[in-house]
Design a protein around this nucleic acid. Structure first.
Lengths: 250, 250
DNA sequence: GCCATAACGATCAATATCAATCATTATCCA
DNA sequence: TGGATAATGATTGATATTGATCGTTATGGC
């Protein structure tokens, strides 16, 4: 890889994650720590990043900084995002549904060698400048506000796709199953469920017990559920009686 | 292969990938590294690319501002964009291809009651916050840097769509027809041509006489061509002998 | 405060890339 | 055609980058 290219990636990675360790960067860019050190020295001199002991921090308005000051639910989403991303292996093909939680997952997928399919404009935007990632966009009627593509075009496009893992979030979970607020969204998501070998649901604990407009699937349909530590013991029991593998993120 | 042709391809490749190594280029163009070095020296001198150790980097927006010629091309693109947008009527359904010129068109479509279909991520991003505009996104393999969706998914999605007007740009125009640099792109664009009642091509005059990799269509296939006033008289004659309606934007 | 550990900067040998040069080949023009 | 000019590919010495290693310095736990 070209030196300039490598340095640009370092800035990009730091920008997306707010911080990056030397080891992370060395592994990610497949080079020695010495080289990374020299790159950081160079970039720090140019003012593009700020060196810290053990790594590097992005300077200026970071995407993550923008969110940093927000609610606890978001910091939980960040943790969930990291936990889910740690599960992903190099070369995986994954389908990312729209949503703020899945966006947090996507942040940790930047510059990793993956095949990512998504119907979310923000996620696509985020991963577009990640050269290691092969990105496939699901088109369709673009739902305002959330920037998610839905409708018949999306459903049709999903028909031709097969992925190893689906990562999605939901609007509400009750004993009756999982729900979302928009029926067009649910229709697309039901199609997603069919295309993935493994289904991973990532939600914050606040979604449990809440209902929403349209039923997506049964409670035991996912293979894995990632949730933060705020989950009620009662719900742990309920999920324990199913085949779903529950991961509590501390 | 002609030296000029080769150099153009180098710029093209760098533009599409952001970076290119000497070895890549030498292999791609079937020539020695010495020749590539000389080409890069030449192109760097002209400011078309930036040399880096081991290869070459595409010159981004930051540097183009200093280049008088490209700045002028941009202001021309802006004028062309406005002229094309003036043609659009309320309620129109239009298909916007990717590219900097069509992006300028899109800027003038914000908050207008339209149905817009596009395969370009930047255009979708721009129009997403326009409540009046119904936005339909064409999905597919997302081409890095340019953010345009291509490939079989895009082609298939275009099959189900009909629009009143197609607005596209091209990479080069010769007597033999219209060309673009990427064969996947051309394939999608050919499908676009089939779905539109009226085809509008918007280009700056610099594209005339220039060749590109892959042939898109015949010279007289568009219904209208918008171009800036820099167009050669010779070309005006050639286009005058066809059915294409030529609009010169002052 | 003290130790163990981790990160740092400096240095060196190995490697990769560069610019300059030269002989050969292709292209142009009379 | 023939001569001049330009472009090409290979070579070479110079230079820059890289990865490993070393002694030094900062950090965190006890």
């Amino acid at each position: 890889m070209l030196p300039d290219q490598r340095r640009e990636k370092i800035v990009e990675y730091a920008e997306n994650n707010g911080y990056a360790s030397l080891q992370q960067l060395a592994e990610l860019l497949d080079t020695s720590e010495s080289t990374i050190r020299r790159d950081l020295e160079y970039l720090d001199g140019k003012g593009q990043v700020r060196r810290t002991r053990g790594g590097v921090a992005y300077v200026g308005e970071s995407l993550t900084d923008f969110d940093e000051r927000t609610t606890r639910a978001l910091s939980q989403k960040k943790r969930i995002g990291r936990a889910v991303a740690d599960l992903i292996e190099p070369g995986d093909s994954i389908l990312l549904d729209g949503g703020t939680t899945t966006l947090e997952v996507a942040r940790h997928l930047v510059n990793r060698p993956l095949q990512v399919v998504t119907n979310s404009l923000p996620i696509a935007q985020l991963l577009m400048n990640s050269p290691e990632t092969e990105l496939i966009l699901i088109g369709g009627y673009l739902y305002p506000k959330t920037g998610v593509a839905l409708g018949p075009i999306a459903v049709e496009a999903l028909r031709t796709i097969r992925v190893r893992r689906l990562i999605m979030s939901v609007g509400g979970i009750t004993r009756e199953g999982m729900f979302n607020s928009n029926s067009l969204l649910v229709e697309a998501e039901q199609r997603m469920l069919e295309t993935a070998e493994e289904v991973i649901v990532a939600v914050d604990a606040g979604k449990f017990g809440r209902n929403a407009l349209s039923k997506l699937c049964e409670l035991d349909r996912p293979d894995r559920i990632f949730v933060d530590s705020g989950l009620d013991d009662n719900w742990k029991e309920i999920l324990g009686s199913t085949d779903v593998e529950l991961t509590i993120v501390e």
